[in-house]
């Protein structure tokens, strides 16, 4: 899932100082799960903005709404209709960066501001703790490393063993919270009985499927542009 953190309040408030009718849009999927942008956070932020502007004697209308996903046309439609119908002049979205782009593309002249900083693709390590697990590089190599990604989980993204900053299995960048990924890979390969595989050199990665190759698209031919839907 995508993990995001809410932006500082003053930053968000700063985005909409010049606007009058503001909609705070929550997203009901990833950011709900990571407790940063679901309906509860949308309501809280909207309430906070109302309090803050009231204290400055500014009269603004601040509404909130949450949809299941801000990255699907069908779910976003009610938001778009609301923006139009209620003369909303600015939207703060608590969805990840995808939601910001997706909404902004559809709203055109109405500005869409990010309410969260999208941080990583991660998993819940324990209730309340999320950790990065994947970087979306476009060409997965974890079959070589026992299911552990050295791109997402190594501070230096090293492919062939640890650097000199690996001390007692911890990463020198943040020894308290971060294990050295190459220690983890070593242990896992041992567990899998494949330690010898680590003697094979992992060649330099082709970074073109990552962002280096330009904007990425994926097409699923089996449902893409169906003729009977687009006569």
């Amino acid at each position: 899932m995508i993990v995001a953190d809410q932006k500082p309040f003053h930053e968000i408030k700063g985005f909409v100082e010049a606007h009058q009718n503001i909609l705070v849009a929550g997203c009901g999927t990833c950011v709900t799960v990571c407790l940063s942008g679901g309906a509860a956070e949308a309501r809280l932020l909207a309430s906070g903005l109302r309090i803050a502007f009231q204290r400055e004697n500014q009269t603004k209308t601040i509404e909130e709404d949450t949809v299941l996903r801000q990255c699907d046309e069908e779910f976003v439609l009610p938001l778009l209709q609301r923006v139009k119908g209620e003369n909303i002049d600015a939207v703060i979205t608590l969805a990840c960066g995808v939601g910001v782009n997706f909404l902004a593309d559809r709203l055109g002249h109405i500005p869409v501001f990010p309410g969260v900083n999208t941080t990583f693709y991660g998993a819940v390590m324990e209730p309340g703790l999320w950790a990065e697990m994947c970087s979306g590089c476009g060409q997965c190599i974890t079959h070589l490393t026992g299911g552990i990604c050295p791109i997402a989980r190594c501070s230096k993204r090293l492919f062939n063993g640890p650097c000199g900053g690996s001390e007692r299995g911890r990463c020198e960048v943040d020894p308290q919270n971060t294990p050295c990924v190459w220690q983890l890979i070593l242990d896992r390969m041992k567990q899998l009985g494949r330690l010898h595989d680590l003697q094979n050199f992992i060649p330099a990665k082709d970074w073109r499927p990552a962002l280096d190759g330009g904007v990425r698209h994926t097409v699923r031919e089996r449902i893409y542009r169906l003729d009977y839907k687009n006569p």
């Binding site: 709900t32 309906a39 209730p127």
Partner: peptide
């Protein structure tokens, strides 16, 4: 059921 993201917070 539409509101629920299955985030497990309630269970936790």
């Amino acid at each position: 059921s539409q509101a629920c993201a299955g985030c497990l917070t309630c269970a936790r």
